[in-house]
Nucleic acid binder design. Structure first.
Lengths: 328, 328
DNA sequence: GACAATTTTGCAATCGATTCCAAAAAGTGC
DNA sequence: GCACTTTTTGGAATCGATTGCAAAATTGTC
């Protein structure tokens, strides 16, 4: 059912029907009534594709996420979708995976769809390859990065201040008397580098000397379990651990329990992200809340400002806060 | 950069450029080479919107989910997106919320976008209102419901057999000697009704007489905690509980622990969905795995079959299995 | 070099809307 | 009833592609 079909049955031209559909003035009340009847009769609603073509605005937003199953990305994607749906946009979502090739590919696809804006959630998009892909395929489309940033004219960033957040975690541990601290890291993303930086800085602040203890683990419960055991064997004096993500903290906590340590008295530990893992592990894990949902919501608003061509700043910092639970 | 711009610079017509872009025969090798050079130079890629308009196929799929933050929906949405991305489709996703009005609205929006197919994830879409909305706005668009079903010519369903799954849970409990069983329910969705049915049927099978004990709770950890306490006070003989979802089982487990019950010896319990809650609670919860990711993957394949007009059955049943852990 | 066969190319219509401009219809005043 | 204004309507171009058909260019054969 197209606008022409309606026009034909109403005995008018498509222009007139279009005016009624878009509620524009200059249509005779009787004609309008007649057309409205037909619109309802056939449940007509205009083809947004065709509309987008002529208007050069398709009200489409692209969301890029490495893996939506990752709890904190889920929250972010949800916030973005909700905010844009409210404003009459549709969101096209892609799970890009971690390969940079895939990311480039999806950036191209989104540009082909002529999306009006893109939100990239997660620091994994803060890479040279993504930068090149943006320059190549969407140099003019507003891009907002949640927890990431690239220095390009059409890119804006919304970031949690994880560096000072991790410093706060260290301060918390130090205040409770834990001074032999270690950091367990899952991978060297830009975001994680900042965390380690915050860790080291605060150690210095607290006057804890010596090289900072950083252990590497895979992003799995089991790996964190193993690494923590090894850590405690190699450095038995350790009494405080910061894990780069909650999942690791969960695995590490299990290891500490199995080794017979009293938590938080003998060894205290924290996660980062304040995710479901932190809340549902036993004991409940103290975690750094980087407020990804809020961050994503802000990102959406940011993007809307850009779409409506309001001038805005280059990036925004949001302070993260600590959700203290049973492990500290 | 449109196809005409390329054509102009190459000194040929748009038709010729189109032929090159789509790799169609009948273009002189030299012309082709020249055009390909320009395509690369300008990073030209055809506007999918315009393409969709003329081809009457936009390679767009709609995904409707009540709330993607709901862990088992996340997995489903992921599976669907991945499968369609692989096939060159884009997915438009909406979190519909639980209101039926919103669902109707999003169904209309998707129809306006002329999506080629729709996947609805979750039994919440199995309602009269959704049925009406489909008839009204997308009577011709293939719709696949994951864990739901509506009797309409364009709708197909992929369902987990939760009824017999819950029966299996009851059987498991009964085999371990638990015969005073209760069911804690979060809400009366079609899916949950089937669970209760399976619960009651198996009680009868096992020769456990009396009306089945069914308690109602909100879908929160706290509510499950309270309801479980009340349940154990009102029926202290209870030695086995089936919770309609894992989150409830998690809250209930905490209540049982606080009341001093030995799990699983004195009281055993199970969740449903085999979600992250089941895996990360302490003790780890035995849960019914309704295999939503697999279900969603099957749904995608099902939809592809429909899109390619292969004939397929009306609905498919998938048997669920039990992931046994520490609470039974 | 003429003519047929074949290859290469472009014109124009199309998809389903929107919108400017001009034409038609209706309304107003004398 | 005529001239003029205002309201209502329709025609045609447009957005950015695709595609069937006809025209043009090239190639081959004698």
């Amino acid at each position: 059912m197209t606008i022409y079909d309606i026009a034909k049955e109403a005995g008018v031209s498509a222009s007139t029907v279009s005016r009624v559909v878009n509620d524009k003035p200059g249509v005779h009340p009787l004609t309008k009534e007649k057309i409205e009847g037909l619109l309802k009769k056939y449940n007509y609603s205009p083809d947004e594709t065709a509309r987008g073509l002529i208007k050069q605005k398709n009200r489409l937003i692209g969301i890029l996420v490495a893996d939506i199953r990752n709890v904190h990305y889920t929250d972010g994607a949800y916030a973005v979708e909700k905010e844009f749906a409210r404003r009459g946009y549709c969101c096209i979502i892609f799970n890009t995976g971690s390969e940079s090739e895939e990311k480039t590919e999806y950036i191209q696809i989104l540009s082909q769809r002529r999306v009006e804006g893109v939100v990239m959630i997660g620091s994994t998009f803060q890479t040279k390859e993504v930068e090149e892909a943006i320059v190549r395929f969407m140099p003019k489309i507003p891009v907002i990065m949640v927890n990431g940033y690239l220095k390009l004219p059409n890119v804006r960033g919304v970031l949690a201040d994880e560096r000072s957040g991790v410093s706060a975690l260290v301060r918390l541990l130090a205040e409770k008397g834990h001074r032999h601290l270690a950091f367990v890291n899952n991978c060297y993303t830009p975001s994680n580098r900042l965390k380690i930086q915050g860790f080291e800085e605060e150690l210095a602040h607290q006057g804890i000397e010596g090289p900072a203890l950083v252990y590497d683990a895979q992003t799995t419960f089991e790996s964190a379990y193993e690494v923590t055991k090894r850590l405690m064997q190699e450095h038995p004096e350790t009494d405080g651990i910061v894990y780069s993500v909650d999942l690791l903290a969960s695995g590490g906590g299990r290891a500490l329990a199995d080794m017979g340590y009293l938590v938080p008295d003998q060894v205290a530990y924290t996660g980062i992200d304040n995710s479901i893992y932190a809340e549902f592990s036993t004991p409940k894990i103290t975690s750094l809340d980087n407020k990804l949902p809020e961050l994503s919501l802000m990102a959406s608003r940011f993007l809307v400002d850009l779409l409506e061509e309001r001038s805005v700043t280059e990036k925004m910092m949001v302070f993260s806060s600590i959700a203290e639970r049973e492990t500290t």
